[in-house]
């Protein structure tokens, strides 16, 4: 009951946020230099003033920006993201063909970075001054500092070129025979390098956070209580302590989701992963406003949804948040 009201409220705030995102993006993009009509005309080969005017009329570019905005908002409210200048297709359909690949990449990277980061952090926390702890610190700082396109290219050179274990690019092999399961394995095979590249940036933060959080929790009174009950050390760490130590990690995981999506843009470009990132990158170069805007809106919506899900997860994990007005 409590949770239903809570979700409704969060969804409402999310919609408000989306409205501002749409307005801001629209205005920003129109302020950027470059005339889409000329780009479209250029693609068509040769241009005259009449053709340009015609194009402007077709796409509504001849109207004042405010009117364009009002029209666009109305469309978006109806789930219509407009038509791509470049592909002459509905943007929603374009994004629809790409969004699955991006979600697969982003969620896999998120899962990998949290899982490996937490494991690294826990082991580092058990001996805060030990060798493992130092290695984790060095490795995680390195991972954080390396630019994602460099890491991606290095991984391609090492694991696709020198040791041809993984494919260089793309999401599927061109020619593949066999049933559905073979295709699943093929996608997973292609997924490894991009997901690892994207995960490495975020791994660092999770490892450090898990280490700090775990050290703090292991010093807590309730951990002493667990030991005094005769709980085996392994269970103390992985049951009593970890459950508390992951709470701040959940928070950060939600906040990182936006960065993860923008990271995916670069990674998709490096690996030619057919997701929203490559589409965004190409569309920016083509001045394909409706597509860029559509991607921004869907990206923002993904972040909003991810944050709501994170908060729900947090409520599930921490009973103190669940009971409203409960003492901490």
């Amino acid at each position: 009951m409590d949770t239903v009201v809570y979700v409704a409220r969060r969804l409402f705030y999310g919609l408000m946020l989306m409205f501002f995102v749409v307005v801001l993006n629209f205005v920003l993009i129109r302020l950027a230099p470059g005339d889409p009509a000329e780009v479209i005309a250029g693609e068509m080969g040769g241009t005259t003033q009449e053709i340009l005017a015609d194009i402007r009329a077709t796409y509504g570019l001849d109207k004042p920006v405010a009117t364009q905005l009002a029209i666009y908002l109305g469309q978006v409210a109806h789930g219509d993201l407009g038509k791509s200048f470049f592909f002459d297709q509905p943007v929603a359909r374009l994004i629809g063909t790409r969004i699955g690949a991006t979600i697969l990449l982003v969620l896999t990277a998120q899962f990998l970075s949290i899982l490996i980061g937490v494991v690294m952090g826990v082991f580092a926390a058990r001996k805060p001054n030990g060798v493992v702890s130092a290695l984790v610190a060095v490795f995680s700082t390195l991972g954080y500092a390396l630019p994602v396109f460099w890491t991606g290219i290095m991984l391609i050179i090492v694991f696709a070129s020198w040791l041809p274990i993984f494919p260089v690019e793309g999401m599927r092999s061109a020619r593949l025979e066999g049933g559905g399961f073979v295709h699943v394995l093929d996608v997973l095979h292609h997924l490894v390098l991009p997901a690892v590249t994207l995960a490495i940036i975020f791994l660092a933060q999770y490892a450090r956070l898990a280490r700090t959080s775990m050290i703090e929790v292991l010093g807590a009174d309730y951990i002493r209580t667990a030991r005094a009950k005769g709980v085996p050390e392994r269970r103390v760490v992985f049951h009593h302590a970890l459950r508390n130590a992951v709470l701040p990690i959940l928070t950060v995981a939600g906040l990182q989701f936006g960065n993860l999506i923008s990271g995916a843009l670069l990674v998709e470009t490096v690996f030619n992963w057919p997701g929203m990132g490559t589409l965004a990158f190409d569309s920016i170069l083509r001045r394909d406003y409706p597509t860029v805007m559509g991607i921004l809106i869907i990206g923002a919506a993904m972040v909003v949804v991810a944050n709501i899900l994170t908060d729900l997860g947090y409520r599930l994990a921490d009973p103190r948040i669940r009971t409203e007005g409960g003492r901490r």
Binding site: D221, Y222, T225, A228, K229, G230, H240, N244, A317, D318
Partner: peptide, 27 residues
Amino acid sequence: ERRLRQLRGRDIGMIFQEPMTSLNPVF
């Protein structure tokens, strides 16, 4: 350690100073 773990909680029980923080908040 195995033996001590058996004794803790079974033969020796302990109550601590801080009831507010001595119980695990998530269980």
